[in-house]
Design a protein around this nucleic acid. Structure first.
Lengths: 330, 330
DNA sequence: CTTCTTTAGCAAAACGTTTTGCGTATTACC
DNA sequence: GGTAATACGCAAAACGTTTTGCTAAAGAAG
């Protein structure tokens, strides 16, 4: 009454275990007729290859990690919750269809991670000199990054097209009428921030706008943004547009604006990047960008699996789409 | 240069693999001195037991599932995102410290789940006659529920103390001055809703209030709540308090109130249950309850692991704490 | 009619643990 | 001093796959 093994199946089918294995894996030719008989019988008997055995033999763990550069407490807290978890949910589903388990990896690479060897790992928006990257590279664990790894074009990544995103948002603010647009990014050196800053510099120059940029520690959250945005606006009272790339910083900025008696979008147009719950719940709702994170996550998993198997798969990655909301269009 | 195995370690230590195994597992006596020598050497050589081998031998998969009764698309969408993911993050960390991987399980039990055998599964707030429960029971997979399983006191569960939560919130609204309190719950038959409804009925009777209760489909989200709450308020214009147990329904209700020209908390005091991003970002912020989900999740994992090992661990589960916010106290 | 190639399949050796049954010493008991 | 109990340790058999030769039969090529 216990689960049938490959040997039970082999006996029932009148072939050797080898043939069963080959029939399933396709690593060697098996008479199509035999194969068909085997799979039918397997189905009937409820045979499923034992994963532990497969993994022992193949040296794989069957687990891939999803690691965020932020401490989990922060990433899972309100601040980045949506971003990471949207990815997690989609990645988990994709992984499951390939018989892989997706494991959420707490940061602080420590002894704990050594035990559980991952076949590969997905790193979410790593910063420059990310410890996670160093850690997994040291262990020869295949890595795929969501968002390019700064200064490491050699590491496969699903591009989030942050330059394009920045162009979309800045162009949108400009088209809506803003002529003095400020920028607030996160302080860590992630690709998305860096590309945004570059595009912003170009954009300002091209449109003869002063470049008024500020970067804040993401962990500071809304409160920090509120304080610093207030200072910024006092220094630059003629600002009439703001691109704030982190949603928590954007809502903090909104609070600052309202305290200063400035109205959104009438006095200042506001836009952010990630279209999460924060952007959607803000009053007024925040203009943002659809990054297609579900698709991004799926591609990340597929790229990683290909990489684990030694292939080099390249996918076209989705382009961001603008979602205009009342925070920028009256 | 490859990872050392138990045999390498045995040779280096001058003992048999058996002794190594016993030294680590403690399943038989090993001379303390020998054991010490072994662990020191293991540490130096970087030996880690191969999990696949352990699992093959022991018949475990080393994976536990986290399943939500809601379709993942909904649970991972804005609606229940916080609730499920707060649990996921904490559970993942706890699992990892025990060398277990936590796997997010998409709903719709299908063939895919059969492949990946879980050692056990955590089910989040199951409804009455939950298909997930049936599915895993059919496979003899140990289950621990977060929130009691309706009509199934035999299934171990981490109690969310929904009756106590309801008493806290209703008492709070009453103390704040509300004398005609309405109730909006979700339509599925989850323990938290059922207990809340029972407490509400008692509370109304005890305080000679009319019982005005409504239950809505959780998947309807804010829009549904907005429509239905508006109708409710038109039928019962003297309502001065509302307990809405699902956060998305609560914010929808808030919108309805504002459209009707009713002010929160001046005209109607509002409270919800789960203190997630929604409650915190709402304007005004929503009174809610701290369910201590991180602790709940940890207990769930530990209870499940104990159960997998055949023990019957019982923990004291955390009690909810009220978080009073402007939506109920002027 | 050789010789070579392809096809379909098998036997046996891994993979790295844990477990079980046995031996030895050593200590304890009468 | 005999016997029992205890402590420590080892050898070998699992666990259920995949992989690597190898064989036998059947075509193909000359």
């Amino acid at each position: 009454m216990r689960k049938p093994t490959i040997i039970d199946l082999a006996k029932a089918a009148g072939v050797s275990p080898t043939t069963i294995s080959h029939a399933f894996s396709g690593r060697r030719k098996v008479d199509p007729e035999t194969r068909e008989r085997i799979v039918a019988l397997a189905d009937k008997m409820g045979y499923r290859p034992n994963q532990a055995a497969q993994r022992l033999r193949s040296g794989r763990t069957g687990t891939i990690g999803l690691a965020s550069s932020m401490p989990f407490a922060v990433a899972a807290g309100p601040s980045r919750l949506g971003f990471l978890m949207e990815i997690a949910a989609s990645a988990a589903m994709t992984a499951l269809t390939r018989d892989m388990a997706l494991c959420l990896v707490p940061t602080s690479p420590g002894r704990n991670l050594d035990n559980l060897g991952f076949d590969g790992v997905i790193v979410v928006e790593p910063a420059r000199d990310e410890p996670l990257i160093r850690y997994f590279e040291g262990r020869h664990t295949p890595i795929v990054s969501i968002g390019k790894v700064p200064a490491r074009p050699d590491i496969p990544a699903i591009d989030l097209h942050s330059a394009q995103t920045a162009r979309l948002l800045l162009g949108h603010l400009f088209d809506a009428g803003s002529r003095r647009i400020g920028l607030i990014t996160g302080r860590q050196r992630r690709t998305s921030y860096e590309e945004t800053e570059t595009v912003y510099a170009e954009f300002s120059a091209a449109h003869a706008m002063p470049a008024i940029a500020l970067s804040l520690d993401e962990n500071g959250g809304e409160e920090l943004a509120e304080r610093e945005a207030a200072k910024l606006l006092q220094r630059h009272p003629r600002l009439d547009g703001l691109l704030v790339t982190v949603d928590a910083l954007a809502t903090g900025t909104m609070t600052a604006l309202s305290h200063l008696g400035l109205r959104v979008p009438d006095n200042v147009r506001l836009a952010t990047r990630y279209d999460g719950m924060r952007a959607q719940l803000a009053q007024p709702q925040l203009t943002a960008v659809d990054l297609h994170l579900d698709l991004v996550a799926r591609l990340a998993v597929e790229t990683l699996l290909a990489r684990i198997e030694g292939q080099d798969a390249a996918f076209t990655t989705p382009c961001p789409d603008l979602i205009a909301r009342p925070s920028s269009v009256g």
